[in-house]
Write a protein that binds this DNA or RNA. Sequence first.
DNA 1: GACCAGGTCCTTG
DNA 2: CAAGGACATGGT
Length: 210
Amino acid sequence: MSESGSCNIRRVLATVIPYGKKDWWKGNREEVMIGAVLTQQTRWENVDRGLGQLKKIGIADMAGIVQCENAMLEKAIRCTGFYRVKARRLRALARHVQERPGGLEGMAAETTENLREELLRIAGIGEETAESILCFGFGRMVFVMDAYTQRICACGGIRSRRMALQDRIMQELPATAESYRTAHAAFVEYGRRFCSSRKCSECRIKRSIA
DNA sequence: GACCAGGTCCTTG
DNA sequence: CAAGGACATGGT
C-alpha cells in the first residue's frame, strides 16, 4: 500500500463525493429492502415504478409479499426486469423475516456482522444487496460497493479487489453511516453521468488523476 | 437493432 | 478462483 495508493483514493473521492445527496434512497426499512432486491442490475426509475405498483396493491412490505399470489407479485415488479427471479428473491427475503425470531426487530438487534451473514444466507441476497440493506435499511456503518465504484476507482488506477477497496474507501471517509450513504449515492450519480460502460471515455477521473 | 442497467447464482475450466 | 451464461424489461 504505497502512499500514492491512498492518494489516488482521495482524489477519486474528492472528485466524486460532491455528487452525493442525502436522502438519496427514500422509503421505510421494508421498502428499502424490497428496493435493494429490485434494483439488482436495473435502473432506479424502473424500480420506483415497481415499488409504486406494490404500494398500490398494498404489498410493499414483508407480510404482503409472503401472503400475496406470486402472479400478482410478478406482475407488479415486471418493469424492473428479471421479474421471476426477483419475485422469488423477494419471497425468500420476506419469508426469512417472517420466520426469523423477532422478525425485523430481531434483525435490528443483531450486530452488523451477524446481520450481514444472516442476509447473505438468504437466496438472492448477495454482497451488494446485503450492504445496501445494512447501510440504507438498518443505518449500519457499511459502504456499499457496486459496479460504478469499482469502475470509477479503476479509472483512477486503483485495482484493489472488492473487499480491499471497500476497506480503503471506508478508511478515507468519516466513520458514519450517513457519510457512507452519501458516498455510495455519489458514486452512483457520478457513474451514471460520467463513467457508465458507455460513457467511460468521458470520465474525468482519468484526467484528474493520471 | 444493439447495448446497457445501483447483481446473483450456477456451471466450467 | 475466473470466466461465461441465464435471468428480462425499459431506455438510449
